[in-house]
Each structure stands twice: as C-alpha cells, then as structure tokens.
Amino acid sequence: MRFLNILTPLLFIILLFASCEEEIDLNLKSDAPRLVVDGIITTDTMAHRVRLTTTGSYFENKPMPGVSGASVSISDGYETIYLEESADSPGDYFTPENYYGRQNHLYTLTITNAEVDGRGGEVVYTASSFLPPIVPMDSIRVDYFGLWDIWRVFLYGQDPPDVKNFYWFRLKINDWWHSSEYKYSAFSDDTFFDGNYADGVWLFWFESEDEYNLVPGDELMVEVWMVDEPFFEFIRGAYIETEYRSPIFSGPPANVPGNISNGALGIFSASSVVRLYTTNTISRE
C-alpha cells in the first residue's frame, strides 16, 4: 500500500496548481437490478451475517432493500449449516451464535430462491472462499507527526516465509471505526516483503484537525485479517473505485471483481482475524 502512498506528493503538486472540485449534474443510465451478496465469516465465534440486496441506480440515494425469503447455506466441506433470516432486518441471514470459521478450510456459500424483481428464483448462486491460517502480529504503535499534523499507526510483526499472504487491516479508535469503508482500510500482499519482519510499518494515518485528535488514554485497535486472493482483489477493486481518481495516476474504471456465480455481485469471504491493541500516551502539543 505504501506504493500508493508515494503518489501523494505528486497529487499535492497538482493541487498546488489550484485545482478545484465541484458537484456536477449528470444523467446516468441504469442497468436492470441484480442480486448482491455481502457475506463474511471469520474465525470469531459469533452470528456471522450474509446480506442479500439488489443493485440500484447510481443515484438511488437510499439503502437498498434486502432480498427476503432466500435459502442461504454455508458448508465447510464437512457440515452444512442453514442461515436464518433476521426478523428485524429483511435480507440479513445469520449463522448460529456459536459459529466460527476454521483455519485452512474451504467454505462454500449456496443461495437459492433469491428473487430480484420477481425473477431469478430458480438460479443457484454459489461462491467459495478459503480461510487462511492466522498470522499473529506482535503489536501496533501510534505517534503524532507534527510536520503534516497527522497521527500515524505502525505495525510490528513477522510475515511467514514462502507462502503468499494477503493482509487486510482495519482501524478502530475507541468506539469509532476509522475503517468504516474499504477506502479507509489498508491492504497489502507480501510480494515485496515475503518472510521479513515488519519493524514498524506505516499502516494508517488520520488528520488531527479534520478526522480524530487523540488524547492520552485513547484506545486504538487494529484488526489483522488474513484473506484469500479473490477477497483481496475485491478489496483492492473496491478501494480503487471509491478512492479519488485522476487521469495521471489512475487507469480506466472497471467493475470490482467478485466471486459469486451466475452474475450476482459482491463477495463471500472466509477470513482469519487477530486484534492488536494500544493505548495512546501522547498528546499533540
């Protein structure tokens, strides 16, 4: 991810040329609605959610309705469990409370009877995801970088050698999720550091003025997710498509690649998660 950060000073130069942004009115075309799957199970023991919704026009500007009445099941190759739709929020399907994902298992999601616009009930949608083993990281550290007036979060830990690892990181400050969207999360594969020790890798930053100003005693938590390659590609695509795009650094827009069969969008992923905590002790002068 640092290879993306490096472009920040370049962007700064463009901004120096007094570029400006304003809202523009556009009439966009619309495609027919399709099924969207947003399902993630982890090594945590809890009721995991698979959410079924539909696509909408780009300027729909309201939450998309859930797809009710579908049959949703997850198999780890040994047993298959059926998820139960929530009574309060239609379209949300949950595993039992005591469910957890096992490392090194291949999970398969099967959805039937999911009607979108009164069609598609007969289609069987499937997706598979491999749950990678946990990689325990050592610690995180936070500091204040006065020159740019930002807080920075660093990671310490060992990358396992000779395997391809895909990392996804999410940051929470006290009760506030900094990584509330893909574009505020961090991700990296280990192409450039396979088997090495990360001795303080710069993971996150946030502006003290506009985002969050830490005071001593603030709790920071970083989730370290080990994900499989399709989910990693999905995260990367979602990041690129929701981040600022410029003709200088960005390629053409593209549809975020998902792993659901039969034309449904979204992702089903099985991941391992560990959490690292630290308490801030410094204050911005």
């Binding site: 909408g56 780009y58 998309m64 969207e181 498509e241 929701t242 053409p252």
Partner: peptide
C-alpha cells in the same frame, strides 16, 4: 466510463460500470 448502478458492500457504495 460512468456508473450504471451501484451496490453496497462492507460500508462502501461501489459503482457498477457499463461498457468502457
């Protein structure tokens, strides 16, 4: 290339594109 739709995933609203 402009969006012809969108979907929700992981807190993000992700555009769906038409033809390039």
């Amino acid at each position: 290339t402009f969006p012809v739709g969108r979907f929700e995933s992981g807190g993000s609203i992700i555009p769906i594109y038409s033809r390039r």
